[in-house]
Amino acid sequence: MADLPNLANLDYVHRVNRAIDHITRNLADPLPLEELARIACFSPFHFHRVFRALVGETLHVFVKRLRLERAVQWMWYRPSASLTEIALAVGFASSSDFSRSFRAHFGVPPSVFDVEAYRRRRRDQMIDTLVPDARHRLARLPAGANPDHFTPRIRDLPKRRVAYIRALEPYTSQGVPDAVARLTAWARPRGLAGGQWLGYQWEDPEVVALEQCRYDVGLEIPPATPVDAPGINVTTFPPMEVVELDLSGGIELEMRALDWLYKTWLPTSGYVPDHQPGFEAFLGEPFAHGSEHFELRVQIPIVDAATSL
């Protein structure tokens, strides 16, 4: 989505983001053009054209890609699930339709796809982009290792209303710092900057190409707070259960924490990741401690493994 400065274009971005949020949260459901156009307040004809112009993909290609990428996540997190279960859970009508689409996108059928090798390549690309001289320090933490003595806790989070600005290509641009600055400039005069700041993304960068990842800089706001500033979107997260870790350090510590949660804690916890983004819940404003040191809580939404899929 291009950086579009005038108010009309910011309104289009706002409306398309509403449709993207609906798609991301409802991949298992049919997503007809007419419904998404209504959510974005466009006619179906204009929505299709505006979506392609801003996102760079047709609506059909975008939805199918998200479903396939979500399927790869489920193949990793839920290895006991059948391909049919995964296909239906991400919105394909049948396992045969899923297999055809998967092979067309990834080059091999899902039955022989090496998820671990694929994620390893994506992770290496992310590290080379973020900290090109530090791959030796960011090797994946092996299962069972916990050298940082991470201590998780389970929390129930209430329903939250969040004002956010979406940063595109967050790993390869200044989109995140710019979004922080814009949202802070809006929040401070309104006395809201002391609230809970969040960073979150729906895509897993170990599955999704970095240039197609989206990162939202968000701020929890009271239910009745009006938000009428161009480019600032509003979303509501439902009540959710999360596993949470406190972090005080740099990106290396955060990546080790995520490795430990996904490879050591989750497989023996009785939980699996929920259909929600992972959150960085900042202590204070984002980047209050600089861009190399973070004070935050990592929060991964979870559901009981016995009731998932």
Results as ranks from 00 to 15, higher is better:
116 E>M: 03
139 A>N: 05
140 R>W: 02
77 Y>C: 07
96 S>T: 09
148 D>L: 02
127 I>V: 14
146 N>K: 06
120 R>L: 08
80 S>T: 09
110 P>I: 04
103 R>D: 11
114 D>P: 06
129 T>F: 00
115 V>N: 10
139 A>E: 09
113 F>H: 08
90 V>T: 06
94 S>C: 06
108 V>S: 07
117 A>D: 01
145 A>Q: 12
139 A>C: 08
83 L>P: 14
96 S>Q: 13
131 V>A: 13
90 V>C: 11
101 S>H: 07
135 R>E: 13
120 R>N: 10
134 A>C: 09
115 V>H: 00
105 H>R: 15
111 S>M: 10
79 P>N: 01
70 R>E: 03
94 S>G: 13
77 Y>G: 02
150 F>I: 11
128 D>N: 13
92 F>Y: 07
124 D>R: 15
91 G>Y: 01
147 P>Q: 09
97 D>C: 02
83 L>S: 09
111 S>V: 00
75 M>A: 03
125 Q>F: 06
84 T>V: 03
131 V>S: 12
107 G>V: 01
144 G>L: 06
144 G>I: 05
106 F>K: 12
130 L>R: 10
89 A>P: 05
115 V>S: 03
112 V>E: 13
145 A>S: 14
114 D>K: 02
145 A>W: 04
107 G>E: 04
88 L>W: 01
135 R>D: 09
117 A>W: 04
149 H>N: 15
